[in-house]
Design a protein around this nucleic acid. Sequence first.
DNA 1: TTTTTATTTAGATATTTTTCTAAATATCAA
DNA 2: TTGATATTTAGAAAAATATCTAAATAAAAA
Lengths: 88, 88
Amino acid sequence: MAFGDTFKALSDPTRREILNLLKDGPLSAGEIVSHFPMTGATISHHLSILQQAGIIDGEKKGKYIYYTLNTTVMDDILRWILELKGEN
Amino acid sequence: MAFGDTFKALSDPTRREILNLLKDGPLSAGEIVSHFPMTGATISHHLSILQQAGIIDGEKKGKYIYYTLNTTVMDDILRWILELKGEN
DNA sequence: TTTTTATTTAGATATTTTTCTAAATATCAA
DNA sequence: TTGATATTTAGAAAAATATCTAAATAAAAA
């Protein structure tokens, strides 16, 4: 919800990789897990942190939970950086 | 030097506040310390992390070390976010 | 209904991070 | 040169983080 949560969420390489995967469209938790050498529990934890930070959304469809990017928080980050650069 | 270092550097509130201070121009380590309720050693550590990440530069002038923003790394972050948003 | 599949939650451990105090280094002033 | 000031480095403790295994929950399939 705050910048801290966002940057903290983005500071982990696994989580950034998850975002890159979601760039091409929604994926279920299991599909995401299959891209990493970690357990489902670990990836679930990372997904929870990303969701908490508002960077992704999860929607349950039957047995699966599909995750999608939500870039509105990213816009806040963009603005913060531009502000820092004095280009705003 | 990598995204990880940059986001990790930005994920701490004290460090973000330091960057905000430097937005208005260079400051010595001591001047920066005076804005926080932490010891000089702690702030020195934060400055080191920011410098390691390439977000600030430090130049020694006699007894003092003046720190300045270096926003070129921020441009990489900007591009990464825009890329994620598919606006690029 | 029972079993299987998808995902999360709980609890534990190892690593990393933040912060402190004390000591070290470098520069300036007397 | 001696003493004071500015800053960093070293080492330690507490808190946060990433990861695992095992257990819990929920939905689908048999």
